[in-house]
């Protein structure tokens, strides 16, 4: 397992949070009329991952160049934690030619082959693809791993169970990461899932499953490190379910009227909690908190500026890239 770098993990979480917060602002800033999801410089659905930073940061801290991730419709935190270029990603979200996908993918379909990162808007369907990437790593004789990320709601999809079985029966270097944020859009887990813990489901496939109950980056870091080490060593797949927190709505514009614990979400925000823990350990000062925040602000502002100043694609470009 890599050496724990607390400051780097804190910094990464702050960077992601700043990104999601600014995208939220920008998303709503020019929605006119405000109800029109297709209006503004960032059109379409927008699923933000604020509150779920510990999952991405704790896992990605162990990944090296060449390791793959398939993320779901809420992908930004894993993309940023996995070194996807912030400028190109932002330009993609703004639908610009400089974007990761030249404006063809958008926020739910980000592809960065250099970092073996992809996401899919169809929940659980990234899991089989991750199995295939892991299969390729295994066949090539590398020690690379594939991380398949999905939400707890997606764990009721057939693709989830097919993938667990496939990874187990072929001993693939896959780490299934389930972000349990309690809510599948508006349906709570206990109303949708037989069995409270998806770590239990892993047991049914002969695969170790761990549930990280606290939304704590160091707990995620340790569990993910053990699982990734295991996969690299050729010991096969693992499953980690992380009980995390959806700080914002399912998508931007979601009033979350269905959510009784809404008033307590800010108390459960993992970033101030981690800052306090690091301050208590004496590894993070007030000055550092301020400078880390300032760095994140500047990086995100620059990415948004880059996106906004990039050209939009021409309509006829829609016909390009159907085939290689």
């Amino acid at each position: 397992m890599g050496e724990l770098d607390r400051l780097a993990m804190y910094q990464q979480m702050v960077r992601i949070r700043q990104y999601e917060s600014r995208i939220m602002q920008e998303y709503h800033a020019d929605k006119s009329p405000a109800w029109d999801i297709g209006a503004g410089l960032i059109p379409g659905e927008m699923h933000l991952a604020a509150g779920q930073e510990p999952a991405a940061v704790g896992v990605c801290a162990h990944l090296k160049k060449g390791d793959a991730i398939t993320a779901p419709h809420r992908p930004h935190h894993f993309a940023l934690a996995h070194r996807v270029d912030m400028n190109k990603m932002t330009a993609e979200i703004y639908g610009r030619t400089t974007g990761l996908c030249k404006g063809k993918g958008g926020h739910m379909h980000l592809f960065d082959p250099e970092n073996h990162f992809s996401c899919s808007g169809i929940i659980a369907q990234g899991l089989p693809v991750a199995c295939g990437q892991a299969m390729a790593f295994q066949r090539k004789g590398t020690d690379h791993v594939a991380v398949a990320v999905t939400g707890e709601g997606a764990a009721n999809q057939g693709a989830f169970h097919e993938s667990l079985n496939l990874a187990a029966v072929w001993n693939l270097p896959v780490i299934f990461v389930i972000e349990d944020n309690d809510w599948a859009i508006s349906v709570p887990k206990d109303a949708s899932t037989a069995g409270a813990s998806n770590a239990d489901r892993a047991a049914g496939y002969g695969m170790p499953g761990v549930r990280v109950e606290d939304n704590d980056v160091e707990a995620v870091y340790e569990a993910a490190g053990a699982a990734i080490d295991r996969a690299r060593a050729g010991d096969g797949p693992s499953l980690i379910e992380i009980h995390t927190l959806r700080l914002f709505g399912h998508f931007e514009g979601d009033a979350q009227a269905y959510r009784p614990e809404l008033e307590t979400v800010n108390e459960r925000d993992p970033i101030p909690q981690y800052a306090a823990a690091l301050q208590e350990l004496g590894v993070l000062s007030e000055d550092q908190i301020a400078s880390i925040q300032a760095d994140a602000d500047a990086e995100v502002d620059a990415a948004i500026e880059f996106a906004k100043s990039s050209p939009e694609p021409a309509p006829e470009d829609a016909l390009l890239h159907v085939f290689a």
Partner: peptide
């Protein structure tokens, strides 16, 4: 919640 345990891995 008696199942979070890293010893499973």
């Amino acid at each position: 919640a008696s199942s979070r345990d890293i010893r499973r891995i």
